[in-house]
């Protein structure tokens, strides 16, 4: 079995498992009471929503920043930095 097939299979398994795990965690919200320090934290599904939104922001921010802060691999001149 090639590495590609195996790793693709692992990726598919993870992609199948993640939504199931997320769904279970949402159900857990009904059963488990969360102690909150802030009123915002007490909002239902706060952590799930925050996780998803923050992931979008980090990825979006990285895509925007990549235009500003990425350069060609030889930017520092290979071995010669200055």
């Amino acid at each position: 079995m090639s590495g590609k097939t195996e790793t693709s299979r692992t990726g598919r398994r993870v992609m199948r498992a993640l939504p199931t795990l997320c769904a279970l965690l949402l159900v857990g919200e009904i059963i488990i009471h969360r102690h909150a320090y802030f009123a915002l934290e007490a909002t239902p599904l706060f952590f799930a929503l925050f996780g998803g939104v923050a992931a979008c922001l980090v990825v979006g921010g990285s895509m925007l920043m990549s235009r500003l802060i990425t350069r060609a691999p030889d930017y520092y001149g290979g071995d010669d930095d200055a």
Binding site: L21, L25, G28, E41, L45, F47, A48, G51, G52, A55
Partner: peptide, 24 residues
């Protein structure tokens, strides 16, 4: 604390799911 564990798992799982979808 069970609430703390749940919150942390939700944070990690949803962030990973959104990121995996964006990459995929």
């Amino acid at each position: 604390d069970s609430g703390h564990v749940l919150g942390e798992l939700q944070l990690l799982a949803f962030a990973a799911l959104i990121f995996a979808l964006m990459v995929r």
